[in-house]
Simulated assay, not measured.
Amino acid sequence: GVGHYAKFAEQRVAESDTQNLLVQLAMENSARTGKPIDKRAIDNVAKEIQKDTDQNKSRRVYDTPSKGVLWGWEVPIYVLTKAIATGTFLMMAIWSIFLGELDSTSEIKGLIISLVFMGITGGLLIKDLDRPDRFLYILLRPQWKSWLVRGAYIITVFGALVTLKLIFSLYSMSMDFIWILGSAFAVLGAIYTAFLFGQAKARDLWQSPWISSIHMLVHAVMAGCVVMIIIVPETIGWISKVLLWSIGTNIFLITKEVLFSNNTPDSKRAIQMMTRGYYSKYFWIGAITGLIAPLFFILSDSGNLMFLGGLMVLVSIYLTEFVRIRVPQMIPLS
């Protein structure tokens, strides 16, 4: 966050003008009212300034640059790719440990998918740091109280375990203990971002890390089930039941957050912006089209409809996380 803000502040100081100031004020006005930011909102702010200003005695000043949205498109995609990577491994491990071994081709496909999406996750994490070389500082000079550091080590170890299991599978060596150890790191990898968000103490909506961690684990299970339906069709009977239960749990958690997370003014404002403000369209598309509609597809006997329902579930994970990550950042801190 500090690197983002320093670069953003330097840019704002270099480019500051009246229009930028109006945009900042319009953003804060939008956060208070829940209305979208558009030209009319900027004009309304301009009229307010004009009404309260004596043109003969006024002088232009600049506010401290608003941090705005520091975590952009990379973070929601990062959360989704991490859910796919950890969830795929976790569901494969559960099947292999409790329900019988997967055939070698499906196992290798699943491990490759998990490894590829974890690689994308790591790439997005490094990109979000702005300075890729800083990622080495995270690993070599860690601050263990930071969940960014803990998370970096978790996904590094998880990636190493998946790689090791893939190598053993290619040479027809079982090494089943990796399923157990890897599952532990898959769970940690799925949930640690909730605690990372929780360290942003000024963002009230993120201050329930244990609930958020359960939510992210459910997302990982959902994503893992979708991948299993695609790569191991013979598991579809059991996997579809797990997917239905995880979708139901996800709907319950979203409902709880919307109805019972209004314990502070900022969290009330965030929920209002999520459900009735500019970003509500993304939220409701994710919640209804991405969760409720797929239930009917998954309950059908058609493989094609189940596949479509699975893709809609992945879209839902992205859209709901996009809103939950972006909206709290739109609320002014002062």
Rank of each mutant, 00 (worst) to 15 (best):
G1M: 15
E10N: 14
Q11D: 14
R12M: 10
V13L: 15
E15P: 02
S16A: 15
D17F: 01
Q19P: 00
N20M: 13
N20R: 13
L21F: 04
L22C: 07
V23M: 00
A26K: 03
S30M: 03
A31C: 14
T33F: 01
T33K: 01
G34H: 04
K39Q: 13
A41K: 11
I42G: 03
N44F: 05
A46E: 10
A46D: 09
Q50P: 06
T53P: 08
T53E: 08
D54Q: 08
Q55N: 11
R59T: 12
V61Q: 12
V61I: 13
Y62T: 12
K67Q: 14
K67T: 13
G68V: 01
V69S: 09
W71Q: 06
E74H: 07
V75C: 05
I77V: 15
T81C: 02
A85R: 04
T86E: 05
G87S: 03
G87K: 02
T88P: 06
M92E: 10
G100K: 05
E101W: 00
D103F: 10
S106G: 05
K109N: 01
I112S: 01
V116F: 09
M118F: 03
M118W: 04
G123S: 08
D130E: 15
L136C: 06
I138A: 12
I138R: 12
L140F: 08
Q143T: 10
W144D: 07
V149D: 09
R150K: 15
Y153Q: 08
V157F: 01
F158Y: 14
L161H: 02
L164S: 10
L166Q: 01
L166G: 00
Y171V: 13
D176R: 12
G182H: 00
S183R: 06
F185D: 03
G189L: 03
G189R: 03
F195Q: 01
L196K: 00
Q199E: 14
K201M: 05
K201I: 04
D204Q: 14
S208E: 12
S208N: 14
S208F: 03
P209W: 01
H215L: 13
M222F: 08
M222C: 10
C225I: 00
V227L: 02
M228R: 02
I229G: 09
I230P: 01
E234Y: 08
W238F: 15
K241W: 13
V242I: 15
G248W: 04
T249N: 11
K256H: 09
L259A: 12
N262R: 13
P265A: 00
S267R: 00
A270E: 05
I271N: 09
M273P: 02
M273D: 07
M274T: 09
R276S: 11
R276A: 07
R276E: 11
G277C: 01
T289V: 15
A293L: 15
A293R: 02
P294K: 04
F296C: 11
F296N: 10
D301R: 04
S302L: 07
G303P: 05
L305G: 06
M306I: 15
L308N: 05
G310E: 03
G310P: 04
L311T: 02
L311R: 02
V313D: 10
S316C: 00
I317H: 06
L319K: 09
L319D: 14
L319Y: 12
F322V: 06
F322W: 12
M330Y: 07
L333H: 09
